[in-house]
């Protein structure tokens, strides 16, 4: 899932600026699961903003509305009425959601309420860790299901490097050496022989150079 974190309150206040009617748009997808973009967080943020502006002598009117996913035009359309009633939108979706809202509602400014960080998952209570770099050329079948591009600090394809000490990466912070993990996983699978193959530099052509597109428009369904 997409992992995001709240922007600083000061940044949000600056974005809201002179707008006096604000729609805080939550998303029930990834950011809600991450505890930063759901309806509850939207209500808290709206209340905090109203209090802050009132202290400054300004009355800010807010409306909170949520959709199942901000990255789907069908759901985004549900916000039409709410957007009409407001001067600006503060999205608590990821960067994708913000752009979908901005595309549909080009009459009003759409602000990002979050910083979108990475694709990851929950590794401990309240701790989210990056697991996938979305590179577009998956090699997890060769590395025991552990992505070296994401989880190795150097992102090398033929590891470990000389900085691997006692299973930890020299970068520190208790970070495990991804290649040590890969070695242990492949050993337990009886496939450690895969490490004897030298991996050639990967093809990065499908990892950038403009927005990537996928799908056949529903043909064949």
């Amino acid at each position: 899932m997409i992992v995001a974190e709240p922007k600083s309150f000061g940044e949000l206040v600056e974005m809201v600026g002179d707008h006096r009617r604000l729609l805080v748009a939550s998303c029930s997808g990834c950011t809600a699961v991450g505890g930063v973009g759901g309806v509850r967080q939207a209500r808290e943020l709206a209340c905090a903003l109203r209090i802050h502006f009132r202290i400054r002598g300004v009355e800010l009117a807010t409306e909170v509305a949520g959709v199942t996913r901000q990255c789907d035009p069908e759901f985004v359309a549900e916000l039409d009425g709410a957007v009409d009633r407001n001067e600006a939108v503060l999205s608590l979706g990821c960067g994708v959601g913000v752009q979908f809202l901005a595309d549909r509602f080009n009459r009003v400014p759409v602000f990002p309420g979050l910083n979108t960080r990475f694709a990851g998952g929950l590794t401990a209570a309240g701790i989210w860790e990056e697991k996938c770099r979305l590179c577009g050329d998956c090699i997890l079948h060769l590395t025991g299901g552990i992505c070296p591009l994401t989880r190795c600090a150097k992102g090398i394809l033929n590891g470990p490097c000389g900085g691997s000490q006692d299973g930890l990466c020299e970068v520190g912070d208790g970070m495990p050496c991804a290649w040590q993990l890969i070695y242990e996983r492949l050993s337990s699978l009886g496939r450690v022989g895969l490490l004897e193959q030298i991996r050639r530099p990967r093809n990065w052509a499908d990892s950038g150079g403009g927005p990537r597109r996928l799908g056949n428009g529903g043909a064949g369904e």
Binding site: A48, I51, I55, R56
Partner: peptide, 8 residues
């Protein structure tokens, strides 16, 4: 902490 951030 939030109160401090918003000005209370």
């Amino acid at each position: 902490s939030m109160l401090e951030t918003i000005g209370l």
